[in-house]
Design a protein around this nucleic acid. Sequence first.
DNA 1: TTCTAAAGTCAACATGGTTGACATGAGATG
DNA 2: CATCTCATGTCAACCATGTTGACTTTAGAA
Lengths: 155, 155
Amino acid sequence: MAKTSHATGLHRASLAKLNELDAALELMYYGWRGMTLEADAYLAKQGLSRPHHRILYVVARRPDIAIGALIEILGISKQAVNRPLNLLLERKLLTSKRSPEQHRSKLLRLTEAGRRVEQRASDHERNVMREAFDRVGASGAAGWMGVMEAIADNN
Amino acid sequence: MAKTSHATGLHRASLAKLNELDAALELMYYGWRGMTLEADAYLAKQGLSRPHHRILYVVARRPDIAIGALIEILGISKQAVNRPLNLLLERKLLTSKRSPEQHRSKLLRLTEAGRRVEQRASDHERNVMREAFDRVGASGAAGWMGVMEAIADNN
DNA sequence: TTCTAAAGTCAACATGGTTGACATGAGATG
DNA sequence: CATCTCATGTCAACCATGTTGACTTTAGAA
């Protein structure tokens, strides 16, 4: 299970710290990479990538979401959503149907296959998080959540 | 200072949690975005972006680094490094010189202007981190570091 | 019937990354 | 000296992900 840092050609650099908080910046960078690495590799095997996963993730948690709402949550333009979304529909990982009362909006849902891909990709990420939380215990996990909430709400 | 979540077109989605750890995945996503948001806006004003900042960041902490070592730390191909690196040299944010004893390698250094840009961009990120750490206190900060180290070393 | 909002589509473009192929410059070795 | 090798530089082709702008289609609402 121990992967070498060279597998990705990337390793946590031993850089001189110019500032007390430099370690935090680097941890954020390599932490993000560390969490997404295996999930991205899995997605790539399926011919998918991060934007596809983001769509599947959101639709899994908001069945019958309209495209407009999806676009707002993803924070990208409808044109940017269009390509990955169409691929997911073609590949039958998603279905879209007109709402009975709101025919304007198309409502998105995962198919069984879509649910499976979403779960497996997200599982890779959750496993990384679970291992990390296990290593530091409940209080460390709570600290992590507190910091990340503060950062996330900075936008 | 309070920015609306709509400024970016992106907001923390109120998504149903299918899994206990979903909150952690979302926090990582929005946390990364939150930390880099202001720095990216500053860099964009300078006509620069994240890859330029990464180069400046590394060279600031490893003066006289050779290009090959830089490539390895960044984890991208030399061709991908080439364009942003050349821009930084043209803009005189970086200098390169042949090493006296190792003429093969070019050694990179920041100019004063480069140091200034690097500091300002990194300051935006550090400020976000500092505020978050202040909000949760030392034990929370320690927990955050522990979790992020575990994740970062997962690669 | 006409107005409007949601969705879809098309074109052009920027950026950041990839591989592959090849040129150059300079130390190392026969 | 000649040649080998390695670090670097450069060029071309390509792909993915995003952008803006312009336009069409669809269908509910006025």
